[in-house]
Write a protein that binds this DNA or RNA. Structure first.
Lengths: 260, 260
DNA sequence: GAGACTTTCCGAACGCGTTCGAAAAGTAAC
DNA sequence: GTTACTTTTCGAACGCGTTCGGAAAGTCTC
């Protein structure tokens, strides 16, 4: 894993490939053929090197993807954050969410680290800062950041995973049979529901669980709602008020802050 | 994908392998060699079949893992849930979390579906029911469930991913060089910090971000804290009070429920 | 120039998940 | 028994990520 600069006057065989060139080739490949085609072998061909050569500049595929993500995060313009500390937390978390949600292949990378690369540290800082300004201790502030990160990462991972499955399913169903045909699945297809949605509906309806049965028809619509912002605000409210409660308890009487 | 019963009197070549046998073999393999060794080829050998034969009983590896997870969830004893609706939500979400956290290889499966298989639907039902009993509309209840699911899945995925990376890193560092040696990394090693922790510390300390710099030393300890239960309670509190606020707004004056 | 040393590059190979098409092994109809 | 049909099984092969050992291509020292 050599430095980026070939820096003359050095010993050893002069490098013909650099990390920067590899990243460039990766972006080119993604833009041209889509990220699903980004394999080590294809990337090597695009970069004009043998596949195994890549491993001298990149630890493994995950490392490459992580660097690509950081590369991307560095290009995201840093928004101006509101002054109100709570709003600042919300804005920074939203920035995290929106940067990541634009990456369909995020799933393979996101579980890697505690947070993103250097280029995105300012989001972490902003959240911690906002929490401290709201009266949190440093420990509470980091816990708050982590909780928000879990929520954010989970939302993105689950939704991206669901979308990917759906795409695969549709490709599969499209490949085998009924192309152009209609009415094969009843009115499910004509109302925008897939055969899979219908099977889920049946599963819920026959589960014997009262609430889920009652919601079976509406389920496909309910689970695709976009509720990240609302959930985020609720979470921030809850976390801050719990932190305030804990601070009160630490100072004064050990009263339970839950309002039963 | 034939039914589980070979059901005599049927036409076609009689099956020599069943889905149940495959799942059995998978559990045997996991118990004996660890889940990392669960590959389709090894599993086929364990089940006494050719690798390609598996694909007649299982769509693909993800499908297999999903079935294993459901198999496992069915064995988890269903706990008695508290009567108080809010506590019921917390208990059901905790049950979700704890069942999944026991699976290290959860990462490869979890992003698959909106929720788990049939065997775990009761957890979803319990959360929705608790939310409705707290005064939520059905839509709000499902939104609440989904928010909690995102938080739960994110916590597990991120933590499992971090743990996996750490294990790989340690194996890598253990393989190459300094075995049994000490003092190579300064006092970092002797104080329980890895070389990686130290590099993170340096990154934070030199980031120019005031709060993260100040927390650099404590960072490894802060990010490994187990805070799921506290975060969960805070989230439930926040979600329910926001739902109540929305209900108030829908009925009466459009007052902003945020307490500034 | 000859050799040591260092760094980069790459061909061969492994095990992986998965697809495809043909072979095998039954039942049903004649 | 022969033929048709159906279902299961499997060998061959593809592209994948990755490891390993050595070849290539420079600099530095005599």
């Amino acid at each position: 894993m050599p430095g980026p600069t070939p820096s003359r006057g050095r010993t050893g065989r002069p490098p013909r490939t650099s990390r920067a060139q590899i990243l460039e080739a990766a972006w080119r490949l993604i833009d041209r053929d889509g990220w699903q085609k980004l394999t080590m072998r294809r990337l090597a061909a695009e970069a004009g090197a043998a596949p195994t050569t890549l491993y001298h500049h990149v630890r493994d595929r995950d490392d490459l993807l992580t660097q690509l993500l950081d590369d991307y995060a560095a290009r995201v313009p840093r928004p101006e954050l509101p002054e109100d500390p709570q709003e600042r937390i919300v804005a920074a978390a939203t920035a995290m969410h929106d940067s990541l949600a634009a990456w369909p292949w995020i799933v393979e990378v996101l579980t890697a680290g505690d947070f993103m690369g250097d280029s995105a540290l300012w989001m972490v800082e902003s959240i911690v800062q906002g929490a401290v300004d709201c009266g949190c201790t440093p420990e509470q502030a980091v816990d708050l950041y982590r909780s928000l990160w879990y929520y954010t990462a989970g939302e993105i991972l689950v939704r991206a995973g669901t979308a990917r499955r759906r795409a695969e399913r549709e490709e599969r169903e499209g490949r085998e049979g009924n192309e152009g045909r209609e009415g094969n699945e009843g009115d499910a297809a004509s109302s925008g529901f897939s055969a899979y949605d219908e099977s889920v509906r049946r599963r819920l309806a026959g589960s014997g669980l009262p609430h889920l049965s009652g919601l079976a028809d509406r389920w496909p619509r309910l689970v695709t709602r976009e509720t990240y912002p609302e959930g985020l605000r609720a979470f921030v409210d809850g976390l801050l008020s719990h932190a305030r409660g804990a601070a009160r308890n630490a100072r004064g009487a050990p009263r339970n802050p839950r309002q039963g």
